[in-house]
């Protein structure tokens, strides 16, 4: 699989079809996969693909990275889940489909808790998204690399995140409030969740808008709550559950719970899941006479 990937990358660079291949390479100790930017054909052999390739590289396609854009047309190594984010970027006019070459990788899952990686994929070290994945065969790629996956996700989504959501849903409102206040109390306002997210592409984030100061920047309960809830709201109908925000969070705030819950609400209310079809706009930005109006009571 890696050989095919390197060959493809080399071809693309040699032909000049792309100027940079955004992919994964090894860190020095070959213990973690890390983003690499391959600009020369002879460097294509640095590319790797394995279950440690957890990053969603689509973040590098956003306007946050002007110096990467300056390199020229990119090819991106993307798993199906990453492609979902690229599709959202295209839908939201952040990217033109023809301006990126997607090298889709068939995938059998990634490792969430990398410190436990012993060379074998096991459900307990994989994120919930992988066990429910319906895009192991990339759905919108220019080229697909890897043998076709026969994995069929369960009918009812299962896994840690879904179990936890059920558990929280069964609590009283004040218990739920208490749960989230406690979780948010650890927030250090580093904004890693925002920076790692390819859908948080705003030129100026609401935290930086200070006339008026919408969100208090101090890491106190008020500031933490308003930041985390505002970000969750901004992702409604857009988030693909890629899990990067929770992975990047240095204090382990379970952002996946929040985002997946929103995804479930959107699915339930609008029968919409983001990142599959670039032509379908997310429900929060379209109006349909058929929209549910349960909120009007």
């Amino acid at each position: 699989m890696e050989n095919a990937l390197r060959k493809k990358a080399k071809e693309l660079l040699e032909s000049g079809e792309v100027k940079v291949v955004i992919g994964y390479g090894w860190n020095r100790a070959k213990t973690r996969a890390t983003p690499v930017f391959i600009t020369k054909p002879e460097e294509a052999d640095r590319l790797v693909f394995n279950p440690l390739c957890v990053n969603n590289l689509s973040v590098y396609l956003t306007r946050k990275f002007k110096d990467i854009a300056a390199l020229g047309r990119p090819a991106i190594v993307a798993k199906g889940c990453d492609i979902r984010n690229i599709v959202v970027l295209i839908t939201e006019a952040q990217l033109k489909r023809e301006n990126v070459y997607i090298i889709g990788m068939t995938c059998s899952g990634v490792v969430y808790r990398q410190e436990l990686w012993k060379g074998e994929l096991k459900p307990e070290i994989m994120p919930t998204k992988c066990g429910n994945c319906d895009v192991r065969n990339p759905h919108a790629a220019d080229a697909v690399i890897g043998a076709k996956s026969t994995f069929v996700p369960p009918d009812a989504p299962a896994g840690m995140v879904f179990n936890k959501i059920k558990e929280i849903d069964s609590k009283t409102q004040s218990e739920r409030w208490g749960f989230w206040i406690k979780e948010f109390s650890r927030c250090v306002k580093c904004y890693a969740c925002r920076q790692v997210c390819s859908l948080c592409y705003c030129e100026r984030c609401i935290t930086e808008k200070n006339m008026p100061q919408w969100i208090e920047t101090s890491a106190h309960p008020r500031g933490n709550l308003s930041w985390n809830l505002t970000r969750a709201m901004h992702l409604v109908g857009r988030c693909t559950f890629c899990g990067e925000c929770e992975r990047a969070c240095p204090v382990n705030i379970p952002l996946n719970l929040l985002n997946q819950k929103m995804i479930m609400v959107v699915k339930d209310s609008f029968d919409f899941k983001s990142g599959y079809d670039e032509k379908t706009h997310p429900p929060m930005i379209v109006f349909s006479p058929d929209d549910k109006e349960e909120f009007i009571k």
Binding site: T34, P35, V36, F37, V59, Y60, K64, D67, I68, V188, C190, Y191, A192, R194, Q195, V196, A248, P250
Partner: peptide, 17 residues
């Protein structure tokens, strides 16, 4: 500098820890 740190996403988590 640009080559080595291109992948940095500017999250600042390093500075907080």
């Amino acid at each position: 500098w640009a080559e080595l740190t291109r992948k940095c996403i500017g999250c600042g988590a390093c500075t907080y820890v």
